[in-house]
Design a protein around this nucleic acid. Structure first.
Lengths: 121, 121
DNA sequence: GAAATTGCTATCATTTGTGTAGCAATAGCG
DNA sequence: CGCTATTGCTACACAAATGATAGCAATTTC
């Protein structure tokens, strides 16, 4: 079982120090972790619904992420399915600005991507 | 070469929609991406210095992340080595609060880790 | 011109993620 | 009760990402 939930204070994937910020980055730096938090911020969801809203992420990964995020106290099960815990919502509040910024960033990308050659936008 | 830099508007690892936030999450959700941004926010660094400050991340991964982050316009090369671009610093401003929050979160984790059954001291 | 430093690439074992199938448990229905 | 549908999840087998290590070409320093 080489896969474990990153916890502040304990070494994590590549991080021997276990500094909180690194443990957090390790937790969030796994596929779909941020996406799951993002989706759940909108509403609680069942496993399958969450899976769909994350563009059909494979159930094995979804299950692992859920497990890790639960162990990290960021999400929990409620009546309507999985949902962000209070801590999870705190975190989401910090992440929320990324939504707008990402579209701003997308704008910059488009500028830099415009092909000087042949592509029709 | 199945590894490419996630760009808003183009499908990315698992994400077929290419929604900016998902492209961003894909970019940041790779090993050491967040850590690299975090480290560079303090000061520009050479490749090797950056590698050390990221707890000896392997050069292959570091090189890939740098490439991706450069293509994403988040970092660039300067006189003193690699550094965050203006865009990268914008992003860091949004991520910065995670530093304090992560220690707060670490506190919660410690609480939850203390054995619940042995309270009868 | 020898040594040290830097920015990488090459290689390969290990870990993670993907895609699909399917199963046990529960819920609704006649 | 039996039938069907949904849900939460596990089990693979295959693909992709990461980790660890070695080392090389191009500077810089002496």
């Amino acid at each position: 079982m080489p896969n474990h939930t990153p916890r502040p204070g304990s070494p994590v994937r590549g991080s021997k120090t276990g500094k909180p910020i690194m443990a957090l980055f390790d937790l969030l730096g796994r596929s779909w972790a941020l996406g799951i938090i993002w989706q759940l911020s909108q509403q609680p969801m069942t496993f399958r619904h969450l899976q769909e809203s994350c563009e059909s992420v494979s159930p094995s990964v979804l299950n692992r992420r859920i497990k890790e995020l639960r162990e990290s106290g960021l999400l929990e099960r409620g009546d309507a399915g999985y949902q962000l815990s209070d801590t999870g919502q705190e975190l989401f509040q910090l992440l929320a600005p990324l939504g707008n910024w990402s579209t701003h960033w997308a704008g910059l990308q488009v500028e830099n991507t415009t092909e000087p050659t042949s592509n029709n936008t």
